[in-house]
Design a protein around this nucleic acid. Structure first.
Lengths: 209, 209
DNA sequence: TAGATTGTTAATCGATTAACAATC
DNA sequence: TAGATTGTTAATCGATTAACAATC
């Protein structure tokens, strides 16, 4: 069974390898990639084995070829088109963040229900009325969506996205979405993450006195 | 051993319970909380048992009392003070996002190295020069930090934060931070999350033809 | 060759699920 | 009581770590 964790690690390896490639590194060992990725060396070797690439004992892995293999394993041929729903503070920060970050992932449209926002171009991305969600997604052949709407409307937005044939959701709203099993949901819950940090930060300071 | 996962689930339960409390619900069953949280009912029961609260067969859990128990388990008495390092697009969105969201977590300072940003009040939060990082953290007794700096400077910022006695980091930069074991790090890697969504979205569409 | 690394299996670990007696 | 739920243990599952033969 294919786990989301390996995709996450491969994504991280690719970023590390991309930096190495830029600085003209040609080869590296599993323990080097492990150290730069915060993963164990054995895990790195297993992951690389998994995508069908082979290294060379005593010479390690070819940076460029490994990068290529990871791309072939992860990337959708022809690129993957994404929509952003909710062009508030967080949504706009995400638009800025993803600008040109992954060539294979392109944000094709933003949506909002605020007339002040739709009908304009925000940070280089066209913003549409939420009314046109289904039409634009279909027309532009968008397959995934980033949701940054208020919690109260998130489930209904997700329902509409699923009906519009979206297959993956990146959900920033603090809501447990109900979607059919063929739709993949990844949650980013910033409040929960910060609460975890605060919890463990206070515990370690307690144990230290 | 205490896992981060249970804290994440407790945080989610608390949010769900808070909404129920607002709408005057007094009691609920494990399977109800489970359904609203996207967790199994047995998991909910185990977690609640873990924090030392007891329900009542056939009457379930008291919403308000459970909320109180979770707070006692998670929250640091006196509140937990947090800094934000990097007041760019993402940092400012986070400031806006956390405004008043968790009463027990307060952002006490923002930092940036851009003279256009520091020395001002941004979205209600005082922004300081990165030069004053150590002094302000010590003075305000800040224990955790949110990092939204560019990847290239993130490790050196983390080193300074650790030296300034920070015990927890919420890291948005795509970098595997090296910190001492007494410092807790939670990573939010939006690029990796979106790549996972895109990967599984394209796979499910493949299997459907 | 000698030595460090890769590919791959076995052992361990932890978390989740399943199950059920105790309870109101 | 009858029936649904809670508290709690046993069984399962999967992921990670440890280990080592094969390899250059």
């Amino acid at each position: 069974m294919l786990s989301g964790k390996i995709i996450g690690r491969l994504s991280m390896y690719r970023r590390v390898l991309g930096n190495l490639c830029d600085s003209k590194e040609r080869r590296l060992f599993s323990h080097e990639l492990a150290s730069l990725s915060g993963v164990s060396a054995a895990q790195v070797r297993r992951d690389i084995m998994h995508i069908g690439y082979s290294g060379n004992p005593n010479r390690g892995y070819d940076v460029e070829a490994l990068l290529e293999s990871i791309g072939q394993f992860i990337d959708e041929p022809g690129g993957h088109r994404v929509a952003l729903v909710g062009a508030g503070n967080l949504g706009r920060a995400i638009l800025a963040y993803f600008s040109g970050r992954r060539p294979n992932l392109s944000i094709e449209a933003a949506f909002d229900n605020d007339p002040e926002k739709y009908g304009r171009v925000i940070l280089g991305y066209r913003c549409y009325s939420i009314v046109d969600l289904e039409a634009v997604i279909s027309e532009k052949n968008i397959r995934s969506a980033i949701i940054t709407t208020p919690a109260s409307v998130t489930q209904s937005i997700a329902d509409r996205l699923v009906a519009a044939n979206i297959r993956g959701l990146l959900n920033f709203a603090p809501v447990a979405l109900r979607v059919p099993s063929h739709v993949y949901v990844e949650d980013i819950d910033m409040t929960t993450s910060l609460e975890k940090v605060a919890y463990f930060a206070s515990k370690t300071s307690y144990t230290k006195g």
